[in-house]
Design a protein around this nucleic acid. Structure first.
Lengths: 232, 232, 232, 232
DNA sequence: TGCTAACCGAGACGGTACGTCCCGTCTTGCG
DNA sequence: CGCAAGACGGGACGTACCGTCTCGGTTAGCA
């Protein structure tokens, strides 16, 4: 697995495990003199951000309110995050970790389950309100777009990869030899699944229930099979 | 065609042609004495809104800036729209009118074309930045959600309906007898198409080019065929 | 009396009496469209400034606190005054209006009286704390220096002029023919009186009582007589 | 001359020469083991304070900036001085040491000279900006007032004492027998001289040139002679 | 010569106030 | 009565310093 943990809190922040011994100090991390940043503050801030998001929603959330809830000074927030967008991405990203690909014996069952999981996640007010807002903001902010990709999108896409491997193992899908084809197929499927679920839940504002999940999965897997046989 | 015109500009707004004769005055529109509202102002405001959206993006757009660009007082904006969200929805909605379902002889060709049209629309900065933002905002605002549905979503969904009718006419798709099944199939397809395109363009931030459109269409139509035969 | 009233509140502020008739609009004051500034707000702010000065002193006085006390938004302060310095000068200037030259029959008695008046003024916390602070600030700010001169210094210097005229009338002082000599003598006396009182009260921090006033006046008037006879 | 050196730098600060032998250790200064404070740091800080005062003025001067200029940590400043006021008083006090009463043969010449010296000192930006500011601050701070009196005022007042003694020696002034009368006369003269010069230079903002000094001295000494003869 | 206590730099901490921007509302006078 | 202008009370912004508090590391002087 690649770097899905990673970015962590802020721009100049050193993840805990990185400071090891004085001897093996990285040359790019000279010494970090001065008082180190409080890890408790980090946790409190992210937790407070999620709480504030639930209570107030994206547009009413303010840095000052988050700071107050976290029992922290506003400056402490700004020392770690450049603004509301970055903070919320980090606060929400962790929620996507709970998505898991269960092994229910068939690809269809697995896909249906993960669709429902994703829909449940999008039901939660902090996710619903935050996800589209940061995506909207990212249309004008390259750095934010990268942050979203690393922190959120990658967390979701790994499920598709995992599902593909498992289906290949089960013999439900032929093993794709060409890695380029494999990659773009994964991307396509990912956009279809994530896009459809998000669109149904947030734009059409209709429930993503078991019935819809089943019909969607049928459409997707049928298409996948037919398309694969045709591409070959 | 059902109600796609509709809501129009603002809460107490009278479309230009509607103020006709004093005789046939609606009882809920008592007399409207005094100076009537300027229709030019409306056009200027919506145009200014789109321009401001291009220049500044959603989050930096302000009512004051729009008013200044339109050569209009802030009060004039608020007399017509309740706030930024409503204004932007109306300003952007018209852009979705340019989407059309061409008749290229086959369903696949038609779908590919409309996918590319939609992608081109999402390339435009005013659309890209506005669409997700108002959707995000609508997660907490019922009235806004309705406005979006009436002004934007309906404009897109009609293409799917149209495509289905045409495909049925061509014999590419069986005529669905049960109207409930028909409706939910249309909804599913709409969410898959719109969701996948939006997700690819704005979240994955990858180009929606002819190749992708073709592969996506293949997946969709294959799935559609297989699913339809299975549901039967 | 020349322009001692005058400057008034703020930079773009129109004193009340100036807006007279629509006909005789000054060409430099084009029309002043829009809602006019609230005169009540002005008064409330200046009053609140003096109160805050008494309670908190110069260095603890904040714009926010003044705004709160005045029941006014911070922006309303900043619309009229560029900062704390300007505001305090205007708020305190009016206090110097209460200085008056009484007519006690002799120059000595008049001078003693005005010295004690001035000392009493410097006892008041709002004056004491503000005067030196704005003077200190004015060492780096040309505009502030002018403001102080127009609003405060001029109010004091008129007493010296008045005293001279009265003493000349009584025959206590010879009538000075050369206006240049007269002017520089007035300046000298003004600096000596104001300087000595301020220095005693605020730097030496000793009481300016009747005894000190008498001894100071004796020194001043004796010197004035001798110097005048010598200069002649 | 008595205690003009005086308080020295800071609250727990030990002037360099004072740490002598263990034997004669003050009982209130238990042992002072460990690394002693850097004397170089002290000098660098005071120098940096004056430099910052010149560049930024009183109100823009910050402890952080002084620390940076001195190549020292903020904590090092706070270990020695309680705050900005105390630091600036100490930094500026030394400048008043350069005031000297020259012996030019007559009291008038001596006074004129010292007036011009004082005026020259007040021309220097660090003095000009600091003196009034700390005086202003001292109106609310008893301890600061004492510090100013010990560090600055006393340095100036000694010149008046010295001048009086010299004039008595020359026979220009009668020797005052009553020490109380002598003391209050010195105080009066001091306030008149210092007050007039400061007021002219900083409030009236007019030049204290040779002409003004001469006219002022004439006024003062004439008054002094007349007043003395009258008091007798 | 090694201990140890107080020093030092760096810089993060919880705060307060800043001055600005925008909000959505409210007066003005003009047309 | 609509409209442009612009002042109003209010709220959040992001920044600058405050004075305090850890950190890791240095430095004198006693043992």
């Amino acid at each position: 697995m690649i770097c899905l943990t990673g970015s962590g809190a802020g721009q100049h922040y050193l993840p805990a495990g990185m400071v090891t011994r004085m001897l093996s100090r990285s040359p790019t991390e000279p010494t970090r003199s001065g008082r180190p940043r409080s890890a408790e503050a980090d946790a409190a801030i992210l937790e407070a951000t999620r709480a504030s998001l639930v209570d107030l929603g994206w547009s009413k959330l303010t840095m000052g309110d988050v700071a107050t809830r976290a029992g922290v000074a506003k400056t402490t927030l700004y020392r770690r995050w450049a603004g509301k967008n970055e903070l919320v991405v980090d606060a929400v990203a962790v929620l996507f970790d709970e998505l898991e690909l269960p092994d229910l014996g068939s690809l269809a069952a697995d896909v249906e389950a993960v669709v429902l999981q994703f829909a449940a996640l999008l039901e939660r007010p902090e996710t619903k309100t935050a996800l589209m807002a940061v995506v909207a903001e990212s249309t004008r902010d390259e750095a934010l777009r990268d942050r979203i990709r690393n922190s959120i999108v990658a967390r979701q896409k790994r499920l598709v990869l995992q599902g593909r491997e498992r289906a290949e193992g089960r013999g439900e899908l032929p093993v794709e030899q060409d890695p380029a084809v494999a990659a773009r197929t994964v991307d396509l499927i990912f956009d279809v699944i994530a896009g459809a679920v998000v669109h149904r839940a947030l734009v059409s504002a209709e429930p993503v229930d078991a019935d819809w999940a089943q019909r969607f999965t049928l459409l997707l897997l049928s298409g996948l099979g037919a398309a694969a046989s045709q591409e070959a």
